[in-house]
C-alpha cells in the first residue's frame, strides 16, 4: 500500500503543486496546502486512488486549505495586537518568478487562477472544470476567455523583451 501511494505521490505531486501554486498565487502557501492535500489522500488511502479525477480533488482540497489558512491569518490578525508597521495581507508573499507571465497570473481573480490551473496545468476539460468548481460550463468558458486574453498579452510582452 505504501509503495502504491509513494508512486502515486511522486507521479502527481509536480503537476498538482504547479496547479496549486498558480491557483493560490503563493509558492510557500502552495507547498503547505499541497502537502496537506496529499496527507488527506494518504489518510483515506487506497480510496483516494479510486477518485474520478485525483488531480482535481487534490487541487480543490489544497485551495480550501489555503483559504482556511488565509482565514485563520485574518482572524489572528484581528486577535493579536498589531505591531506598529504596515499590516500584512493575505496576498502572496513569495512569487515563483518575477516575470510578466507570473505577474499576470497573480493578478487574475482567484476563480480565474483556479480555472487556468485546471485547464492549462491539469489539462481538465471545461465540463470537468465546471463540475469541480460547481459552476456552469458557460462561466468556465467566459472566465477562461478573459484569463486567456490577459495572459496572452503577458506572453507577447515577454517575447518582445
Amino acid at each position: 500500500m505504501d509503495e502504491d501511494f509513494t508512486d502515486w505521490y511522486v507521479a502527481l505531486r509536480p503537476r498538482v503543486l504547479r496547479a496549486v501554486t498558480i491557483a493560490v498565487g503563493d509558492r510557500d502557501l502552495a507547498e503547505e496546502a499541497t502537502a496537506e492535500a496529499f496527507a488527506r489522500a494518504l489518510a483515506r488511502w487506497p480510496a483516494a486512488a479510486a477518485l474520478d479525477s485525483p488531480v482535481a480533488w487534490l487541487l480543490k482540497v489544497a485551495v480550501n486549505e489555503a483559504r482556511t489558512r488565509w482565514r485563520r491569518a485574518r482572524l489572528e490578525r484581528r486577535h493579536l495586537q498589531r505591531l506598529a508597521g504596515e499590516p500584512q495581507r493575505h496576498a502572496p508573499a513569495a512569487e515563483p518568478r518575477d516575470d510578466a507571465l507570473w505577474t499576470a497570473v497573480a493578478a487574475l481573480p482567484e476563480r480565474s487562477r483556479q480555472v487556468v490551473a485546471m485547464r492549462y496545468v491539469l489539462d481538465l476539460t471545461e465540463p470537468e472544470i465546471a463540475s469541480t468548481l460547481g459552476v456552469t460550463r458557460g462561466t468556465v468558458a467566459s472566465t477562461l476567455s478573459r484569463a486567456r486574453r490577459q495572459l496572452a498579452a503577458a506572453l507577447t510582452h515577454e517575447e518582445t523583451k
Binding site: F5, T6, Y9, V10, R13, P14, L17, R18, T21, I22, R27, A30, E31, A35, E36, F38, A39, R40, L42, A43, P96, R97, L101, W102, V105, V116, Y120, V121, D123, R148, L151, A152, L155, E158
Partner: peptide
Amino acid sequence: DELARALARIPVGDHAPVEHLRGRA
C-alpha cells in the same frame, strides 16, 4: 499550447519526500 508551455516553466518547489506526509496523515 503556448500558455500551457509557459505555465509549465513557472518554477515550483523541489520534490518533497513522501515521508513528511506520514505525520500529517
